[in-house]
């Protein structure tokens, strides 16, 4: 278990990541703040506490992998990668601009630390399965983490992949659903309800945890418990708040892909300070 001090460090890091997110989207005048903010604590926990990685050696074969299947949340990934030292923090200001390595959606060919190019929703779990299968074949003990959106899992391919993970007993795979309850056209429960999530994933042969995706203690404890599950893939359903941390964005469907005005930007930064 981590101590209070470390928890505080992680909380502060996540707030800094959130500031980067708001700043990047504002500067680019484009991008997706809502689903980036909801995943900030999860990614901070993974990259700053849980994953076995070395930013100096992004191609290290034994590294843990993370796939941002909901690729539109690229700002949160870029912010975390930059803070973790994969590239200079200043480069965040190039997000979505011409000639930037920080493409609108993550591009593994351009930016070190990005494990998979994503953007077309529904594909990341299949790719994660492939990496997990390769790890087993090679007798490498790395883990593969993948973050899915709760709207994203409406894609049929996700459930094809869910069968695959269980069929091949991929206990080196840990998936997380960012259960923020919203997609673009409205609440997931109204657009196309993917629930009941726990029952579905369990029925597909997964070990399921449900957590508060903003509580570092719970996130870390669950990620630790997940490593002990053998013979099955693990799904963590993380209850989150879309737009988390920015008062006027929280739980608001319109902040999926809207850019803050100057005043809103200042409000957001003060909310996060």
């Amino acid at each position: 278990m981590v101590d209070q001090e470390r928890l505080e460090f992680l909380r502060q890091k996540a707030q800094l990541v959130r500031k980067h997110i708001v700043q990047m989207v504002t500067e680019a005048n484009s991008g997706h703040p809502g689903g980036s903010l909801s995943a900030a604590d999860l990614l901070t926990a993974l990259y700053f506490q849980v994953m076995r990685i070395n930013p100096e050696k992004p191609d290290w074969p034994e590294r843990d992998r993370f796939i941002l299947s909901k690729g539109h949340a690229s700002p949160v990934l870029y912010a975390v990668l930059a803070e973790r030292g994969y590239f200079p923090v200043e480069e965040l200001s190039t997000f979505r601009k011409i000639n930037s390595r920080l493409q609108g959606h993550p591009d593994m060919k351009k930016l070190p630390g990005v494990e998979m190019s994503t953007g077309s929703l529904g594909q990341g779990l299949s790719v994660a399965n492939g990496m997990a299968l390769a790890g087993k074949l090679d007798n490498l003990d790395y883990r593969v983490y993948v973050l899915l959106g709760d709207g994203e899992i409406e894609e049929g391919q996700v459930w094809e992949a869910a069968m695959t993970s269980a069929h091949y007993k991929l206990d080196n795979l840990i998936a997380v659903v960012d259960y923020n309850g919203l997609q673009i056209d409205g609440p997931v429960s109204e657009v196309m309800n993917p629930g009941p999530l726990q029952e579905k994933w369990r029925a597909f042969g997964w070990h399921v945890f449900t957590i508060d995706g903003h509580d570092f203690k719970e996130i870390l404890a669950t990620l630790e418990a997940a490593r002990e599950i053998k013979g099955k893939p693990v799904m963590i359903i993380a209850n989150t708040i879309k737009g988390k941390g920015v008062s006027f964005m929280e739980n608001k469907v319109e902040w999926h892909g809207t850019v803050p005005s100057k005043e809103q930007f200042e409000q957001a930064i003060s909310d996060l300070s």
């Binding site: 593994m108 494990e115 998979m116 594909q123 779990l125 299949s126 790719v127 994660a128 399965n129 492939g130 990496m131 997990a132 299968l133 390769a134 391919q157 992949a161 695959t164």
Partner: peptide, 8 residues
Amino acid sequence: GTAAGLAA
């Protein structure tokens, strides 16, 4: 998609 992951 799985093939992509294996290749990666």
